[in-house]
Design a protein around this nucleic acid. Structure first.
Length: 380
RNA sequence: GGAUUGGCUUGGGCA
């Protein structure tokens, strides 16, 4: 039974829902009685796959078998319903839960709070939060509660409200953690309020919270977006000196920003580091370097990279082709641009308007009217 | 012994 359950949960987590379902049925056929964990795990798998109706069906089946759901079972269902935006059903389940004498816990409320935020009802989320704080029939909020509220508020641009809640909770309830701060810092950086972000960052360190790789990623991304490359670089190396591993997007963002400000050398250095290291470059990494090497006039290096990419089993995507065509056209290398265009369509990509635009401009500069007419036909 | 909620996501021409 436990073996079955473990296997099924494993399968669910790998997205092999069909197999898990098969195993579940096999269990029933063999007369093995699924226990609450088995049922709950299966319901969770169904919810994660968006099969809410099936999950509810199984839930009812569970009731028929007089297996009593516990808080976790209810929470999983509520979460599934929240993710689908079915808040009215959520409240039905909640009611049922209470009728059966189960007390909703902090996880239950957190999910409902997030559900409310996700349907754009942040004000009701705030009301729920107040109830959690003041009403004894509810449960005290935890750091998760705060982080979800912050996310909801920040999405509506209500950053200062979010920051206020965070600092009040830290001060009076000692609730809040590196996640709540990371969410806030990210939001402020996105908004362009670097000062406030830095202030919060100092607070993180003062409170003795340990920034994790997520925190660094958020900041690297934020500073890159604001073109404050030196701080981004500093954070990147700080992160590594702490033994945290930068993610692929961290590398890519940093490389893209370096390229944008003309530090092509530094970008390629990072790229080579990736190739020699544990984080292997993906198509995006290649695109970034290929594009800026052409921009820097080094077409040969771009070609080498294209070959290198193929050897490593990465296929160019629509961006790769568009980039190449756009750049080649601009350089007046229309033969190459044209053959790239042909390869692009042969690979099944449909060129967008910018590709046609560049090609048309390129041909027009050289007075190649027949080519232009041919293109216009393909567009129409 | 096994099951539930939170924080950033990266690349292209012309402008």
């Amino acid at each position: 039974e436990v073996t079955y359950t473990c296997l099924m949960n494993g399968l669910c987590k790998m997205g092999k829902l069909k197999e898990a379902k098969g195993l579940f049925n096999a269990m029933l056929e063999r007369g093995i009685r699924p226990d609450i964990v088995t049922f709950t795990g299966m319901i969770s798998g169904l919810c994660k796959d968006g099969k809410i109706a099936k999950a509810l069906e199984l839930f009812n089946f569970m009731l028929e078998k007089s297996e009593e759901p516990n808080n976790i079972t209810y929470n999983i269902l509520i979460n599934g319903l929240c993710k689908e935006g079915l808040l009215s059903d959520v409240f039905k389940i909640l009611e049922m839960m209470v009728e059966k004498g189960k007390k909703p816990d902090v996880v239950t409320y957190n999910m409902i709070l997030r559900g409310l935020c996700d349907i754009g009802n942040v004000n009701d989320a705030l009301k729920l939060f107040d109830l959690m704080l003041s009403n004894k029939n509810y449960v005290d909020p935890d750091a998760w509660t705060i982080s979800m509220l912050i996310r909801g508020l920040c999405r509506e641009g209500r950053l200062d409200e979010a920051a206020k809640i965070n600092s009040e909770m830290i001060e009076h309830k000692k609730v809040g953690d590196v996640v709540t701060y990371t969410a806030l810092i990210g939001a402020y950086l996105k908004e362009g309020n670097v000062e406030k972000a830095m202030e919060l960052w100092k607070e993180v360190l003062q409170l003795g919270l340990i920034p994790d790789s997520r925190t660094y990623s958020v900041m690297i991304d934020g500073f890159c977006k604001r073109n404050i490359i030196n701080i981004a670089k500093g954070l990147f190396s700080k992160m590594r000196s702490l033994g945290l591993t930068p993610t692929l997007p961290d590398y890519n963002t940093l490389m893209a920003t370096l390229c944008k400000e003309g530090s092509f050398e530094q970008a390629t250095r990072l790229f080579k580091e990736m190739v020699d290291g544990n984080i292997q470059p993906d198509v995006i990494s290649y695109n970034i370097i290929i594009d800026s090497s052409i921009k820097a006039g080094n077409i040969q290096y771009a070609n080498e990279l294209l070959n290198h990419m193929n050897r490593r089993g990465l296929t160019p995507d629509a961006f790769t082709f568009s980039m190449l065509i756009n750049r080649l056209s601009k350089l007046g290398l229309m033969e190459e641009a044209k053959s790239t265009f042909e390869r692009m369509t042969a690979c099944g990509f449909s060129p967008d308007i910018s590709v046609y635009d560049s090609l048309l401009k390129g041909f027009s500069v050289q007075g190649q009217t027949e080519e232009m007419i041919g293109l216009l036909r393909k567009m129409g």
